[in-house]
């Protein structure tokens, strides 16, 4: 049996040796951050919107930071699995999350999660896209007023879609129906693409999403969920003008686990600002008409706070919160 023992030790030694080689750098003191690759955790699968933002951002962010950056997809449960993983990571600045509005400000109201709004050091916001109220291009509805008249006459006859229960399209539509004081059914789909299919086949009549979909599908915008009219859509009135001050946009920001050293957060935030102007990122955001909106650490923190309160109230009014 001594042979076997010797053998096992050798195997272990080889494995340990290899692993140490891989992880070299972990042991040495943090002289100049970043000393090893920084992992950006994306809480959605590859190919989605958040993933596209993160992967477009990766190269420019790495250059601005003067280090290496890896993107890791940890998908599942409306983004909460990956977001929880960020919250549970070591607060050393080497694990960050690229997290959109949903997991940060709506999911914590819907159910118990291993994180909440105090689990973070806010680094920066990257993109922010206002939402618009959408109907099919051949729809008889041409204004929000049409919608209110028809739906008041036929409560429960019309259907609005969403990208899933508790998602931003759902929130925006629920709030709209509430503000117009009309009743409609909610038919959740599992994403914007599925919702657009339901709209094309006539299963749903209303949807809410950023204006990007206008150029891709046969849909028209009746109103925007903004305070000012959207640049590029001068003919689309705002909900505020129509007397329903509703404000919804989909944003994506970077967060670090609570307790990440302030100087590291500062450095990340500055690099983030620089990267939002980077060539790769600009190319991708321009081609997808994504609005880049950089916010520094403090601004982003108070922005998330206000969004958290606002969305919590809407969910409560819609009878959806836990």
């Amino acid at each position: 049996m001594t042979n076997l023992k010797k053998l096992l030790t050798t195997t272990a030694a080889i494995a340990v040796g290899a692993a140490t080689m891989v992880a070299s750098g972990v042991t040495s003191a943090m002289a100049e951050y970043p000393e090893r690759p920084v992992t950006l955790i994306v809480p959605f699968g590859a190919g989605g919107n958040t993933d596209a933002v993160a992967r477009a951002f990766q190269a420019d962010f790495a250059e601005a930071l003067g280090g290496e950056i890896v993107v890791k997809n940890t998908a599942g449960a409306a983004g909460t699995i990956g977001t929880a993983e960020v919250a549970a990571s070591e607060a050393d600045g080497y694990s960050l999350g690229v997290i959109p509005i949903g997991p940060l400000t709506t999911q914590p109201h819907l159910r118990d999660l291993p994180y909440d709004k105090d689990s973070w050091e806010y680094v920066c916001n990257i993109t922010k896209n206002p939402m618009v109220l959408l109907v099919s291009k051949d729809s008889p509805f041409n204004s929000v007023e049409d919608v209110k008249t028809e739906l008041s006459a036929n409560p429960g006859k019309y259907v609005y879609g969403s990208a899933g229960p508790g998602t931003l399209p759902h929130l925006a539509m629920a709030a709209t129906m509430g503000a117009l004081d009309v009743e409609a059914k909610h038919l959740p789909d599992s994403g914007t693409a599925d919702g657009m299919r339901s709209m094309a086949s006539g299963t749903i009549q209303f949807f809410a999403d950023p204006p990007l979909v206008l150029s891709r599908y046969d849909v028209k915008a009746l109103a925007s969920f903004t305070d000012e009219r959207i640049e590029g859509l001068p003919d689309v009135p705002t909900m505020k003008e129509l007397g329903h001050p509703l404000n919804f946009s989909i944003w994506v920001g970077i967060v670090a686990p609570k307790g990440t050293p302030a100087d590291v957060v500062e450095k990340l935030s500055a690099a983030c600002g620089e990267a939002t102007k980077g060539p790769n990122f600009t190319k991708v955001t321009e081609s997808t008409s994504t609005n880049v909106e950089y916010m520094d650490s403090a601004t982003f923190g108070s922005f998330v706070d206000s969004e958290f309160e606002k969305n919590g109230q809407i969910l409560k009014d819609a009878g959806l919160s836990k």
Partner: peptide, 12 residues
């Protein structure tokens, strides 16, 4: 034809 991806592969 419709711009609607049917699965993750076509979405990518």
């Amino acid at each position: 034809a419709l711009g609607i991806p049917g699965d993750a592969v076509t979405a990518v």
